[in-house]
Design a binder for these strands. Structure first.
Length: 825
RNA sequence: GCCGCGGUGGUGAAAUCGGUAUACACGCAAGACUUAAAAUCUUGUUCUGGCAACAGAGUGUGGGUUCGACCCCCACCCGCGGCACCA
């Protein structure tokens, strides 16, 4: 046989072309599946800079799994698409004047080429892009369904506004008071906007988490985000007119210690309590309210250390003991948390303590603590403390456990008295979806001349995004600059009618794409119900940890809504989910252009080949871990593949070396178990181990030491990992290659290992004396259960005998095939 | 502060159920080939002592359970991610 050198560029180009020609693994969703595997990768935003190594990691992992499942005879669906609306393309357009549609198309073309070079076996038949009218028509349809049910509504509210991007942001897109995207300080603005009523499903979104196989941390994040808390709402009353001021709290056991009541400025205005304020306080209160209104989120945050407030001069009655306490307004009380009215218990709450100190308010201790140091400090009003203890100064409840019986009894009593009730609160807010941006799906709403909103008629969908638009940010929606858009609206709905000029948050587009994947060319429905039923839910979703909260919550919300509307039969869209870890630069830091530590996958491919890149990224470590890039380790993987290729150029043996056969089956067993467990790193290590033994066995010979059947077995094992090389080597081995009957390695059945052959004949059993390893006993496989003999043999081992001499054995243990343990006195 | 994840050789990391800690790879060292270098191959590589046999120590720290702990329990330290004036 002619010896060939491993030429990755030639081999990869050849097979990429061949697979494309025969349409390998295309259009798979049409088949009604028996053993379905719907594998999903969080679709990418097609940025101008192309695929990065992080994309490669998750795409490769799923591709390996996909190829493995196919070989084991399952019906796999592995689709691809583009999250194509969004800010970067629009910002680029503002800078250069190039239309986002153009840059997006170019970026998608780049990505597509890179993906094919990587050997990712996507099914392209249902490729989709969210900016395509054929897609966003159904995004708009979804909006209209929500609208019909009152789950898409218009509301006035204080919104987060990014002055640089000139748009509203969802709460989720504000990170520490700054815009998630551009880092600009976010300001508050009052606007009328569209919301999706996700809170309608808050309990189900919480409960559903118990049904899915997701990382515990992710579920916990979602739970925290929904933030369900059971508390007690207690009425305090305004002395002047007996008006009830409900206070919500988790710590009602400290209610006897309330020495003031404080409410959010917005709440004070909403309740119109200003009129009740005595004349001499009017000015001070008005000033404070005005000042609070003009504070940004950031300024309020700074106030954390120095709390401000104003005494309204009004008096409030604490109904538990009739005590009269002052009413304050303070901006450390947040609108939207509880009732926005808080009882101030300075002895047992840090914030209330700081406030009481500043305004010289009394501090009443109502819980005494076992720790005398703490108790002393609280008694002397030196600090506040929250913790378990006994109630004091609390009327009939004195002496009861504050975090036990006392808490329960007090709640029961207050409820019985009629001035308290249970109330559950949530942190989750409705989803603000309006964006004053161009590059998104238009909200399908038109306004009549009176300004009343009406849904765009379904026959007018897709409600297309106009093209005659000036992108320059003005603080208003760019769509306002389109003449065509207004003309179209007037033509279809009448003179004086106006379209909604805002577009939808791109999270709307990207939170239902996994449904459209199943039938992306359907023009009658977002997907054929038969396909939806056959393929949903998604069996495995691989997604970056950055999407833990928003995307997943929204996708689950849509799923539940569409189920209620009769379109879906599932409760949860993603049965199993895992996260891939971030690939860091060689310096161990997050890759970024400014740090100059970015690794370009194209360069790795041209230097070492796609097979090497794939295997290296999977070999770096566990899929979910953050891993730094190591150039030299890449070369190590390239070496591995080169060695595999070289050993396949030897003459095929007529018999397989027995020791090597055992190792082969052991390796196959390990790889077969590791792939579905997503433990690609150890599967690769096992194959490397096999190669090490193989080379040793075949050394100083011109033969492979494997039969052609066993050579095929290993190459099939390698196929999901290194699809190009596997196809090449398989072709070299199989005689029908080049003929019409030739079918590549990727459609071959996954080999079966011989369990008996994979078992070692002799097993090394470790022998311990007093927990220390003192010897090793080699036992024939058939003798493993013979405890008596083994214990006798173990004692006789030279290294063991030495340590047992002059000692009395008090216990001896034998775990078959593992260990012998002697305990002595 | 709260929630979550993690801490193992010089480095990335293995260790399936509580059972021989450090597989695999990188790096490093020595050697082979070479005029030389690169590439490739071979051998070694947890630490301490010892020529060696061997002995001792060893999975962030301190304790505990167990014949036996990277793994389980308690207390703590450090790193990373998220949330945070949430009453």
């Amino acid at each position: 046989m002619k010896k060939m050198q491993y030429d990755h560029a030639k081999i990869e180009a050849k097979w990429q072309k061949y697979w494309a020609t025969v349409g390998l693994f295309q259009d798979q969703v049409a088949v009604l599946p028996k053993n379905k595997q719907y594998l999903l990768f969080a679709f990418a935003y097609p940025s101008g800079s192309g695929l990065h190594v992080g994309h490669v990691e998750s795409k490769t992992a799923l591709d390996m799994l996909t190829r493995f499942y196919r070989m084991t005879g399952q019906d796999v669906y592995f689709p691809v698409g583009w999250d194509a609306f969004g800010l970067p393309a629009e910002n680029y357009a503002i800078k250069t004047g190039v239309h986002p549609a153009v840059t997006t198309r170019e970026a998608i073309d780049t990505f597509r080429g890179q993906i094919q070079r990587l050997g990712i076996s996507y099914d392209w038949a249902n490729e989709l892009a969210t900016n395509h009218p054929g897609y966003y028509r159904w995004t708009q349809w979804l909006f209209l369904q929500l609208y019909k049910k009152g789950l898409a509504y218009r509301g006035i509210g204080v919104v987060n506004w990014c002055p640089k991007d000139q748009t509203v942001l969802a709460n989720e897109q504000v990170v520490e008071g700054h815009c998630e995207r551009c880092g600009t300080k976010v300001v508050q603005k009052e606007l009328e906007q569209w919301y999706f009523k996700i809170t309608q499903y808050q309990d189900e979104l919480l409960d559903g988490l118990n049904q899915v196989d997701w990382p515990e941390a992710t579920k916990q994040h979602q739970r925290n985000w929904i933030g369900k808390v059971k508390g007690l709402t207690i009425d305090f009353t305004l002395k002047k007119n007996s008006q009830a001021l409900p206070v919500w709290t988790k710590f009602w056991e400290t209610v006897y210690g309330a020495t003031f009541v404080v409410m959010a400025p917005e709440k004070f205005e909403a309740l119109k309590l200003g009129n009740l304020v005595a004349a001499d306080r009017q000015q001070a209160v008005a000033d404070y309210l005005d000042q609070a209104k003009h504070k940004t989120e950031e300024e309020r945050r700074i106030g954390e250390k120095d709390k401000t407030g104003v005494n309204t001069g009004l008096t409030v009655v604490n109904l538990v003991n009739g005590q009269e306490v002052p009413l304050f307004v303070a901006d450390y009380i947040l609108m939207g948390v509880g009732t926005a009215i808080v009882m101030g218990v300075p002895a047992h709450d840090e914030r209330d303590f700081a406030f009481a100190k500043k305004y010289s308010l009394p501090i009443t201790q109502v819980v005494s603590y076992d720790d005398s140091k703490i108790d002393q400090a609280v008694r002397n009003s030196e600090r506040s403390f929250e913790g378990p203890g006994k109630l004091v100064n609390s009327g009939q409840f004195d002496g009861q456990e504050a975090w036990g019986a006392g808490k329960e009894n007090m709640a029961a009593w207050m409820i019985e008295q009629g001035f308290a009730r249970w109330e559950t609160t949530y942190k989750l807010r409705d989803w603000l979806i309006s964006r004053q941006r161009y590059w998104g799906a238009p909200i399908p709403i038109v306004y009549d001349p009176d300004g009343k909103p009406h849904p765009v008629k379904e026959e007018h969908l897709p409600w297309t995004l106009p093209t005659d638009v000036d992108f320059k940010p003005t603080g208003e929606s760019p769509l306002k600059s389109s003449q065509e858009f207004v003309a179209r609206t007037e033509k279809l709905y009448g003179k004086g009618w106006r379209p909604e000029f805002d577009t939808m948050d791109t999270f709307v587009d990207s939170s239902w794409y996994f449904l459209r994947y199943l039938d992306a060319r359907n023009t009658k429905a977002f997907a054929d119900p038969k396909q939806l039923k056959a393929w949903l839910p998604v069996d495995l979703y691989l997604i970056g940890p950055e999407h833990i909260v928003l995307h997943l919550l929204y996708a689950r919300f849509f799923t539940k809504f569409l189920r209620d509307e009769g379109y879906l039969t599932i409760n949860e869209p993603f049965t199993k989910m895992r996260h891939q870890g971030m690939i860091l630069g060689p310096d161990g830091k997050k890759m970024s252009k400014s740090k100059g530590n970015v690794i370009n996958p194209d360069e790795i491919i041209s230097k070492f080949g796609a097979d090497t890149l794939r295997i290296y990224e999977m070999f770096m470590g566990p899929l979910e871990a953050a891993k730094p890039w190591d150039d030299r380790a890449v070369a190590g993987v390239a070496r591995f593949l080169k060695r595999v290729f070289a050993v396949y150029q030897l003459k095929v043996s007529s018999q397989t070396d027995p020791a090597l056969a055992r190792k082969l089956h052991q390796t196959l067993k390990k790889v077969t178990a590791d792939i579905p467990a997503l433990k690609f790193n150890t599967a690769i290590a096992a194959m490397m181990e096999f190669l090490n033994l193989w080379e040793k066995t075949a050394r100083d010979s011109d033969e492979t030491a494997l039969t052609s059947q066993d050579l095929v077995m290993f190459i099939k094992m390698l196929a999901p990992f290194a699809p190009f090389m596997a196809e090449e080597l398989y072709g070299q081995l199989v005689s029908v290659k080049g003929t019409k009957q030739y079918q590549g390695v990727h459609v071959q059945p996954w080999p079966k290992f011989d369990a008996k052959l994979a078992q070692e004949e002799r097993v090394a059993v470790a022998v311990q004396v007093d927990g220390k390893l003192r010897g090793q006993l080699t036992v024939e496989h058939g003798q493993l259960e013979d405890q008596t003999t083994i214990l006798v043999e173990a004692r006789k081992l030279a290294g063991v005998e030495k340590w047992l001499k002059d000692k009395q054995i008090v216990k001896e243990i034998y775990i078959p095939g593992k260990i012998v343990s002697f305990a002595t006195k």
